[in-house]
Design a binder for these strands. Structure first.
Lengths: 170, 170
DNA sequence: TATTTTGTTCAATCTTGACTGAACGAACTG
DNA sequence: CAGTTCGTTCAGTCAAGATTGAACAAAATA
């Protein structure tokens, strides 16, 4: 590695996704994986992922599971192959938004619940607590509508047969 | 501190806000401060904040500045007082949402920018990159509408003269 | 002017979570 | 069955950020 090296555009993209997801509280490797899958779709084998991104098998295991739980990628079995394969899911982003929504709802509920046990709080205090809870309600509503937009393909290309039929990564 | 001690409801609320904001990527102390201000409005003096939350003056300085930048609280000067005072802002949550919006836009732009330099990416790849960028666009739009809801006081009490006229913390 | 108060800054410490790599069991292969 | 491949788990390491507390400068006080 020379010191003035500039990596290629694909690496930039993948690393960029790593940083974006990291700034959103996710592991950087999850972002890199996501970047790779967005670029190439897949399927990629378990080992292939570790090699391409130069990460440990442990990280592949942990982060593919994370992305699988989020519905970003899906695990596929391939004829004659012992390894697990992964490819970008048909609807990769819905569950991410749904999780955000649930977290806002949880916060709102937590605040209201705590507020009930509160005493010695004047009417102004109650009002401020209510506005705080409402703030998280607004966030929940916003993510809910984002979910709708995502499903309607708002601004995006219309929903087509997203699952690749070809096996080879592009 | 006895081992089976249960703190009072106010402390629960404040600590709860600490955890909620921490889960959103902010310092826990910022959340605690926010909880205190929501409960009592303020104004609180700099020293008072350090005492009530049992945190260092350094943390008070850092986190009040953070919340001030976010527009959650505002610094106020009090007649005959040398210390800085802080109180909950009139519209505490707008800037938080606006920052979320900007971050989504930035991500979208970053993706599109990186995508431009990409080559050797088939039409499917381009489509997936576009859908990814669109995803962040949807998030940006959602937060934008959340901002509107917040301004309209959607679901919340109508906008009134939020700034306390009384000096004493409730 | 000397002292005190006040808020900021910064080096040091602490905490949290990500990441690695080795150990492990399961499943496959020969 | 012995050896290999595969994915998961977990203890250990590492990095990033939060928090503290002392040092500092500015402003007020006496």
């Amino acid at each position: 590695m020379s010191s003035d090296m500039t990596q290629d555009a694909e690496t930039d993209f993948i690393e960029g996704m790593g940083l974006i997801l990291q700034s959103d509280g996710m592991p950087r490797i999850a972002g890199r994986l996501m970047g790779l899958f967005v670029l190439h779709g897949g399927p990629f084998s378990f080992t292939d992922l570790a090699d391409r991104l130069a990460i440990s098998r442990g990280s592949v295991s942990t982060n593919t599971r994370l992305l699988e739980d989020l519905g970003v990628i899906e695990r596929v079995a391939m004829k004659g192959e012992r390894q697990d394969f992964f490819r970008l899911a048909a609807d990769p982003y819905a569950e991410i938004v749904e999780r955000k929504r649930v977290r806002s709802i949880r916060a709102q509920e937590s605040i209201r619940r705590n507020a009930e046990t509160l005493d010695n709080i004047g009417p102004n205090g109650l009002k401020r607590v209510d506005e705080l809870a409402n703030f998280f309600g607004v966030l929940a509503t916003a993510t809910e509508r984002a979910l709708d937009d995502l499903r309607d393909g708002d601004g995006a290309l219309p929903r087509t047969n997203r699952a690749d039929t070809s096996m080879a990564a592009e």
